[in-house]
């Protein structure tokens, strides 16, 4: 059984929680409060992850830290070929978006953590960086839609690339960044929300179901 160390309000933990639910992998959750008590800095948690960062999973003794590595681990183990790519160009593309998600975390996420009181940052710099990345992602998705693709990778099934980027995009308004200028991003957010076993977190709301005949 997987033990999942997480904070309910952490967007990087949300990416992992989404995949656990979509794969229907059972787990027990262990709450590590990042703010205000900073339970992640306690020796008890540092013994699990010396970097004192969330999320972390412990899969029967295999400890993996960080959203991207956990997503790779879970998807490669439970759903290779769907949630995780196995062919060469797709592997590189997934890695591209996992890296992009880290950059979203450092800009969009940093703005949100600043506004939430978690961690002060250089807000104008975070907004500038966020705008550049969101604009690029919106353009990528617009072209993808023109090619008939719904997801970040040109695959019929969504991948961990989508789940890694989604939390940052859907919570950007908590960092004072509007999604208004990014219509393709907004449509993609709705598609992610309509996936089977989708799960909300505080700050994320369900979307209307697709129109049925």
């Amino acid at each position: 059984m997987i033990t999942f160390y997480e904070d309910a309000l952490c967007e990087n933990c949300y990416a992992v929680r989404l995949l656990l639910h979509m794969l229907a992998v059972p787990y027990t959750s262990h709450f590590i409060e990042l703010y205000p008590s900073r339970a992640n800095l306690q020796p008890r948690f540092r013994a699990i992850n010396p970097l004192a960062e969330l999320p972390v999973i412990d899969d029967d003794g295999v400890i993996i830290a960080g959203a991207a590595p956990i997503l790779v681990y879970l998807a490669a183990k439970h759903a290779p070929g769907t949630w995780y790519a196995t062919d060469t160009p797709a592997l590189a593309q997934v890695t591209h978006f996992l890296t992009l998600a880290e950059r979203l975390s450092a800009t969009v996420g940093a703005a949100r953590r600043h506004e939430s009181g978690f961690a002060p940052t250089d807000l104008p710099a975070a907004h500038t960086g966020a705008t550049r990345l969101l604009r690029g992602l919106d353009a990528h998705l617009w072209f993808a839609e023109q090619q008939g693709n719904a997801w970040l990778l040109p695959t019929p099934h969504p991948t961990i690339a989508d789940l890694a980027c989604f939390p940052h995009v859907i919570l950007c308004e908590e960092g004072g960044i509007s999604r208004q200028p990014y219509p393709a991003l907004r449509r993609w957010c709705d598609r992610v929300k309509r996936l089977p076993n989708f799960l909300v977190m505080p700050g994320v709301f369900l979307t209307a179901p697709p129109k049925t005949e």
Binding site: A8, L9, H30, E33, M201, P202, G203, F205
Partner: peptide, 17 residues
């Protein structure tokens, strides 16, 4: 305590937006 905190923070996080 963690369970109670998570419950309250979930509710509060829903109010925030």
């Amino acid at each position: 305590d963690e369970t109670i905190k998570r419950f309250q923070q979930t509710v509060f996080g829903q109010d925030k937006p």
